[in-house]
Design a binder for these strands. Structure first.
Length: 99
DNA sequence: AAGCTGACGTATT
DNA sequence: AAATACGCCAGCT
C-alpha cells in the first residue's frame, strides 16, 4: 500500500453519513490537488466487500460517474442515506463537507 | 524501466 | 449541449 492510497482511504472513510464529496476534493485533502483520476482508479480497485463509503464520492458536477448497474447501486445507496439524487445528480444541500 | 489506463477536471471546439 | 483534447497521479503490464 502506498501512502497516497492510504490517505485517500482515510479521507473517504471520514465522509459523514448523508453527505457526499467529489473526487477532486478527496484528492486535494489527500495532498494531491490534481489527482482526481487517481482517486477514481483506487476506488475501482476496492474489494467488493469494502467498508469504505465509496458511494459518497461523486464527480465535480455532483453526478455519478459510473454507468449501468454500478451507477444504479451507488444511487440506491445514497438514497438510502437520505441523500436526494435526481437522475444522476446529487442535491447541493449535502454537497461538500468540511472536517 | 517505459508505456498504457482510468469511477476526474477544466478548457476548447 | 455534447464531444474532444490535455493535464494529472498512482498502479499494472
Amino acid at each position: 500500500m502506498s501512502a497516497p492510497n492510504e490517505r485517500i482511504w482515510l479521507i473517504i472513510a471520514a465522509i459523514p453519513y448523508g453527505h457526499v464529496t467529489t473526487y477532486g476534493q478527496v484528492a486535494a485533502l489527500a495532498g494531491l490537488p490534481n489527482a482526481a483520476r487517481t482517486v477514481g482508479r483506487i476506488l475501482s480497485n476496492l474489494p467488493t466487500g469494502t467498508k469504505l463509503p465509496w458511494h459518497r464520492v461523486v464527480n465535480a458536477r455532483g453526478e455519478i460517474s459510473l454507468t449501468g448497474a454500478q451507477a444504479t447501486r451507488q444511487k440506491k445507496l445514497l438514497v438510502q442515506e437520505g441523500v436526494t439524487v435526481t437522475r444522476k445528480h446529487v442535491s447541493l444541500a449535502e454537497f461538500g463537507w468540511q472536517p
